[in-house]
Amino acid sequence: MEHLVYPSKGLSEQAFEKREVLFETWHVKAEYAWDTGVAIGKYLAELKEGRIVGRRCFKCKRVMVPPRMFCEHCFRPTDEWAYVQDIGTVKTFSLCYVRWDMVRLTEPEIPAVIDLDGASRGMGIMHKLGAVDSRAVKIGMRVQAVWKPPAERTGSITDIAYFKPL
């Protein structure tokens, strides 16, 4: 099948730097204003108050975090707000040495999926761990939210600065 591979022209990064090939750059002007919606609007407002709120479905009994106004399993509206703990269990984590644009970090960020107490099993949220030696992080570790001071909260998931070991 060798003859069925077209000999396409690969370029080096230098070909661009030295302008050996013609190219154009384009900066897309894409800015968005998203409506938070009902469930997430409430979730963010509660975070500002230092609380984590979920939503309960009476049919399957699940408490969902972040909250949703409908249950995707039962396909019906959820029934009530339900506060959950700011304490939970690390389900998985990573030690990340690169930023979103692939700039290198000397100290790793520690993203984790955390199951919060009071939410249904497997209803993890993504957040970051802090105030911990990266070598000491373990799956199954118990952690608690470290909240920003009330004056610094804006109604954002980052109102929780990070989770630290209990």
Partner: peptide, 22 residues
């Protein structure tokens, strides 16, 4: 929606640009 003021706007963008070969 118990408190309509809970609804709010969240801003964001796509932090990319493109380099097209001819």
């Amino acid at each position: 929606l118990e408190h309509p003021t809970d609804a709010r706007i969240w801003r964001g963008d796509l932090p990319v640009y493109h380099r097209y070969t001819a």
